[in-house]
Design a protein around this nucleic acid. Structure first.
Lengths: 240, 240
DNA sequence: CGTCAAATTGACAAGGCTCAAGTGCCGTGG
DNA sequence: CCACGGCACTTGAGCCTTGTCAATTTGACG
């Protein structure tokens, strides 16, 4: 597999903290194992001991936790360039699950090698640390989203965030795109049932905020969408 | 103010990653400003440019975000030894509010000094990084709590987490303690109203899970409390 | 003793869930 | 090429958990 596969990740880190040539060279030397997986494949399971680091190169994934009754809460969505288990740089046990929600390409390499790179390249350490902080900021926004917004706002907010992050990752315009997730997954991310997500999507559509064609989405009134969602992209810390 | 005030923070960092004498010495040399504040005092406001770092030495605080209708979501509680704005090591603008929920003592020092210490002392950098990761793990659990648990479980979970973290911070037994927060604040943390929090507390009390005397709490049936809460302290990563 | 915030309780409303039935789409195999 | 099966999506009806509103009570403190 050609090493350009790393581009998405390197470019994401570079946006978090300007990398030196030496930083990039060190990353390119990592011994990697690239894998193509199908939608639904579990990448990391809660409780698992993790010794490899995993980067998502193509496709989409989510992280989730379960409650006792089998209820599932998705805590984040991920796309090209995202590191799926940065926390295992310092923890050895996974505290949540990670799974692909579309066909995807992921690359693995030994966590020990990344630890060494982080020790030797402060630019990379800083980029990764900042990535953790952005992650945490997004989680805080999600707590607010599920805790204190009504159903329509929650769904709209999820759409806005997905569109904004997609764009930031260089995956194209935020005004028209394909959603990789099912309505059930949107429900699991927003603390709603699939049925109610469906009703909220229809309502947003009837109000002329956006149009749907299957999973393809066109946001016709971005200003209104953001208003309904109470979306302000500050918490994504896109401009480092 | 005597420097032993730092003890709570140093001991927390030490638990996250064993510190060297030199690490500790560097911290003790920080030029500090210690302040006593009353309950309700805002420490950091959303949008504010932050140039100082703030550690909570005594008392309790919370971080919160607001939605447009004035709804408030508390995203975390903090206690002695917690760093209230570790994210400002790498971001200059606050994306949420921090306020005291009891009388408290906080210490400030220039973020620039901490940045320098972090650059020179990898042990401290690692401890702080791990602290960020624990934070993120707790946020994920809160997303699950607010998104996929019913009211009684949410409240019970908040109580369990508070008790466990209190104990880990060396503030005493998890079986009997005083709650610093009002029922309204518990509601803001769990995505419920104060009225419903009150009902849930009464219900837990009637079921014999715990006893109350004002804000003083005694957990009479810890096993049952954990069961109701679906509480498993793994996500707190107490044993680094 | 007066004041004020917090806690408590009841009656009622509503947002979102559950259950159930049906539709549409797409890949697979005959 | 068409029939079939399965999954995602839709939609309706009724229920239930939680919110809203409002009135008291309690407790801390000056």
């Amino acid at each position: 597999m050609p090493r350009d596969y790393f581009e998405a990740w390197i470019s994401k880190m570079h946006a978090l903290n300007t990398l030196q040539e030496s930083d990039i060279a060190a990353i390119r030397k990592l011994p990697t194992r690239s894998v193509e997986i199908t939608s639904g494949t579990t990448i990391i399971s809660e409780g698992q001991l993790v010794s490899e680091c995993c980067i998502l190169l193509e496709g989409f994934a989510c992280r989730s936790k379960l409650n006792r009754e089998g209820g599932r809460q998705i805590v984040s969505f991920h796309m090209a360039g995202d590191m799926l288990d940065i926390q295992h740089l310092l923890f050895d046990k996974a505290d949540h699950n990670v799974e692909a929600i579309s066909a995807a390409t992921v690359v693995f390499f030994p966590m020990a090698d990344l630890r060494k790179i982080v020790d030797d390249n402060s630019g990379i350490a800083k980029a990764l640390w900042r990535d953790c902080l952005v992650d945490a900021s997004i989680f805080r926004e999600w707590v607010l989203n599920v805790g204190r917004r009504d159903a329509k706002s929650r769904v709209a907010h999820m759409l806005c965030e997905f569109a904004a992050r997609r764009e930031a990752a260089g995956l194209g315009s935020p005004e028209r795109f394909d959603l990789p997730m099912t309505q059930e997954q949107i429900g699991d991310a927003t603390g709603l049932t699939a049925v109610h997500v469906n009703r909220m999507l229809r309502q947003l559509e009837e109000e002329g905020v956006f149009e749907r064609n299957g999973r393809n989405v066109r946001i016709s009134d971005w200003a209104q969408m953001k208003r309904v969602a109470e979306f302000d992209d500050g918490y994504l810390h896109l401009a480092a």
